[in-house]
Design a protein around this nucleic acid. Structure first.
Lengths: 241, 241
DNA sequence: CCGGATCAGTGACCGCCGTCACAGACTGGA
DNA sequence: TCCAGTCTGTGACGGCGGTCACTGATCCGG
């Protein structure tokens, strides 16, 4: 795990880095705080840098604290012992991960990995709990975030239980196209990555993409997936189970 | 939806019913409150009675408030439009449901149905939010409960994604046997109910049970499933994916 | 421009699961 | 005791998804 700790504590009279201030200012968790209060908590955080592929923390390990994603993108995923993986969600800056074990004293429930180079700020669990006691509105914000995540998970369970790979693939393609710059129809994901998101394997993704292509819904040129008929994809994705 | 509202408000100088007091005393959400504070919130609750099969609330409807289960058992589930169902979790008294939408202003994410005759106490969302503002330790307790639920969901996703019906059936049989009175090996569930928990259909459960029986792991007499070889079941359930 | 490394496509195969269709077992009243 | 309603067991069958085993395409660094 490659990362660099810039410093353990920043004396609060020293100016904090730009990205640090912005991170703590834009996260919804601290939205209701005054700038001075935000400064307080920001000063407690440890900056960590991760390269794409680095693991922030593994499932089953004790919780360090709250990670605020300052820049970059991470995935939250579970891996089976046979190497298959399912991605629970992707979080891009500004965002936070590992809110849950902060309050129930459990282990990390999933693994978080950087998808791109990422800068995160770690607020140690003790510091955060102390801060929460002084600022009771913070746990309520955390609850909103956790609630959103819980809804996502329920949606995923529904999709995995009732839906087919084909349907979920359609959904992911649309989503990826939307997120990709300029909303273009180009999708910069490898089949392997798609398979991970879906909890399946590469070959199945290949086959389904081939079917989509045969039906004129997508076009594949030089490992680039291009959406030709978004409406058809949407219909596929939104097919009720 | 059959239920009976006993009274909207109980003047707090009047004695509350036994079950009401016990419900609010045993739920972990209010464990840190003084008896007087508990009395306050308990007095705000509306008692509702449900018969087995009654729906407390449906997914997609606005959230009434927090339900505390005073007695009985409920299931939290999602249903597909084609009628298949998956049970996310079962909650028996003392417990609570619908904590999530209290804080993120969303709709109910799932449907809650009474499995047995159930008495619940509904704290309206506004009352609860007001109470939380006065008692900041309550949201933290809620977070712990929601965290537990989130972990359960992640486990379910893992099981559904990587595991087989056979494995999950083994797990449910063990769990059901343990919960059933006297820890006996008798399981009072119908194949249909098992199928709902698993997100599959009756026939698949029948077949898997038949296989278990052929292998001498369970015995089925008169619609009663009896576990013969718990160790084998456990091995089956704990097989890593 | 070349050669290794990664990514993609595909065929074969098989087991599991979901569906349909019935027939038989069991239960709980009337 | 009988009947209606529910629950179970099973066979047939098709499709999808997971695994294996390759081959071919593409990319990138030297």
């Amino acid at each position: 795990m490659r990362y660099i700790e810039t410093r353990l504590r920043t004396p609060s009279d020293l100016p904090l880095s730009q990205v640090r201030r912005e991170t703590f200012a834009t996260t919804s968790l601290f939205a209701t705080l005054t700038p001075e209060e935000r400064q307080q908590i920001a000063a407690l955080a440890v900056e960590k840098q991760f390269k794409a592929g680095d693991v922030l923390f593994h499932e089953g390990t004790p919780c360090d604290g709250l990670y605020l994603i300052g820049s970059g993108t991470v995935k939250i995923s579970k891996t089976s012992s046979s190497g298959r993986e399912i991605m629970l969600t992707v979080e891009s800056a500004p965002s936070s991960v590992a809110e849950v074990p902060l309050f129930d004293n459990g282990m990390n429930p999933a693994t978080v990995t950087a998808l791109r180079d990422t800068v995160a700020f770690l607020v140690h669990i003790g510091d955060f709990q102390r801060f929460c006691r002084q600022h009771p509105e913070v746990p309520i914000k955390v609850l909103a975030v956790v609630g959103r995540r819980l809804r996502q998970l329920i949606g995923l369970i529904e999709a995995v239980t009732f839906g087919s790979v084909r349907q979920r693939l359609a959904g992911i393609l649309l989503q990826a196209a939307q997120e990709s710059v300029e909303g273009g129809a180009q999708i910069p994901l490898t089949h392997e990555e798609l398979a991970l998101r879906l909890g399946t394997v590469r070959e199945v993704v290949s086959r389904n993409l081939a079917r989509f292509q045969a039906e004129g819904i997508v076009r594949i040129v030089k490992r680039q997936i291009e959406i030709v008929d978004p409406a058809a994809l949407r219909a596929e994705a939104e097919t009720e189970f």
